[in-house]
């Protein structure tokens, strides 16, 4: 009996470690795959997509709403000297600008019904600044939602989205770093 205690202890330890590791890693792996998928479907880095209306044929993210306009922008603030300048144009109905880090946390949301919103996104560890949000992780996704439950409203939302902006900048300059979209 005693000779099985060692293997049994190893089994319990490995099971617990594998359980914790899988839970810890799963969101990151899923998010990374989702970001790759979004990139493959044309969601640019540092630029809002011009979205198609969500239908069974165009959906790219689980549980998307066919009643909402979604514009996505992937960001990468790995360079601590950069920031992302974000602008959401005005929209008369519900709209929001939401920020998601690499762990799926919705770390900030700004509601902007009837008004435009401008904000800067700073790299992790940055000091707080007025008009800016500090991202908990270097990479993530910015998402604009607009209430647009029919084709006509969706077309109007697309027009409103032409002034949306998601741009990587140097923090002490306006020009975008080389290679940034």
């Amino acid at each position: 009996m005693k000779r099985w205690l060692g293997p049994l202890g190893v089994l319990i330890f490995v099971a617990a470690a594998a359980h914790v590791a899988a839970l810890h890693l799963a969101p990151g792996v899923i998010i990374a795959r989702a970001l790759d998928m979004l990139a493959a479907r044309g969601v640019a880095l540092h630029r809002f997509t011009t979205p198609e209306r969500v239908t069974p044929q165009t959906q790219s993210v689980v549980r998307s709403s066919p009643d909402l306009y979604y514009a996505l922008c992937r960001y990468d603030l790995s360079n601590p000297g950069t920031q992302v300048s974000v602008r959401m144009g005005s929209w008369p109905d519900y709209q929001s600008l939401s920020f998601f880090d690499a762990r799926t946390d919705n770390f900030a949301t700004i509601r902007g019904s009837g008004r435009a919103v401008a904000v800067r996104l700073l790299p992790p560890g940055s000091a707080a600044e007025e008009g800016a949000i500090v991202s908990p992780t270097a990479k993530g996704v910015i998402l604009i939602r607009r209430l647009a439950p029919d084709a006509e409203r969706f077309a109007a939302a697309t027009t409103a989205g032409k002034v949306d902006r998601c741009r990587l900048e140097w923090r002490d300059r306006i020009a975008a770093p080389a290679g940034a979209a």
Binding site: L23, A26, P27, I30, I31, A34, V61, V62, R63, S96, S98, F100, R103, T104, N106, T109, V141, L143
Partner: peptide
Amino acid sequence: RARVAHHGLLALA
């Protein structure tokens, strides 16, 4: 977290 990443990605708080 893992469930949301799989079934409800980009859900709001």
